[in-house]
Design a protein around this nucleic acid. Sequence first.
DNA 1: GGGGAAACTTGTCAGTGGCAAGATTGCCCT
DNA 2: AGGGCAATCTTGCCACTGACAAGTTTCCCC
Lengths: 186, 186
Amino acid sequence: MTDTRTYHHGDLRRALLAAALEAVEEVGPAALSLRDLARRAGVSHAAPAHHFGDKAGLLTALAAQGFDLLTQALTEADGDLLEAGVAYVDFAVTRRAYFEVMFRPELYRADDAELIAARGRAGAALRSGVAARSTGGAPADTDRHALAAWSIAHGFATLWLAGALPDRVGDDPREAARAVLRRLTT
Amino acid sequence: MTDTRTYHHGDLRRALLAAALEAVEEVGPAALSLRDLARRAGVSHAAPAHHFGDKAGLLTALAAQGFDLLTQALTEADGDLLEAGVAYVDFAVTRRAYFEVMFRPELYRADDAELIAARGRAGAALRSGVAARSTGGAPADTDRHALAAWSIAHGFATLWLAGALPDRVGDDPREAARAVLRRLTT
DNA sequence: GGGGAAACTTGTCAGTGGCAAGATTGCCCT
DNA sequence: AGGGCAATCTTGCCACTGACAAGTTTCCCC
């Protein structure tokens, strides 16, 4: 990478997060090993603790970053509820490592301020997508509709990642998601 | 329990599965420790290996048992799609340990024959609930509807378990699920 | 350039999964 | 009845992990 042999590495925090992303995709978030990350980054086994405290700290940072990336993906599909749902599923599949950590709060510090803020932003982006579409109706109705939309997108994404869906849904998550999500939005 | 001091314990396999259920509810499926289960059952640390081979083997047995229990819960609500969805969410919440293992295939042997059979039975129960309701339409349409129903129920259950839902949904999962699922079924 | 703080290393400890080898017990067969 | 066999369970071990403590190197700012 930057290849500069600064012997403080210079960019360890970022390197560890990048290594963590790879590792999570390979073995899942639970089997992640700090020592393995250290090896991947070429530092000693105790180096990660300096930047993240412990494993939960590292996953907290990863989850927060993930929520911000999700916010970005959702806002890009703004105005179209169906496309927002597709974007949600697409995010889960293409950035699987982030997604798998984000919704496993027992692995990180769910009370971390930065994480809560990032999660809040993602929630707002999600709700704004629904509100933009539901022209009329009581706010409580919009809420329930948002919950239903979130549930169906999240459920489809989760089942897809778990490999629980039958083969006949195909191998294009976006297309398959669209067919399912249409059931709710129309 | 049976209290008989048979010095082959007599019922270790069942005792270990019961201990595993408790442990999973306390610390989650990933943090489960075979040695801890052995301690809970009052046997040596290597005893579990004899019945399940390794950790994945134990979780495979647990997942298979879980799919059968889910099948049972779904068939009890047969004929009513909405109630089947509510039963699905209820199962996830009240038998959380089973549910959390079942949909984390990286933790067990997804190619185990008994497990595949049990999962197949659950899938059939799920689809029959949808087929019973959709009076007309092409089979592919029924399939897609089943997928949508499964997704919304699974998504709601997963979000509930992850503690990701806002407080305002209340603390009764059945009632909250009904309000959300109605969005799809009507 | 000197001093202090941050970044990183080395060393250690308890806990875990898995394997191998041995001990104990139930069970079947003659 | 009892001999032997297989299943069950134990003890002992090794490699690995997360976390902590103490030491070393490097950077940065005055």
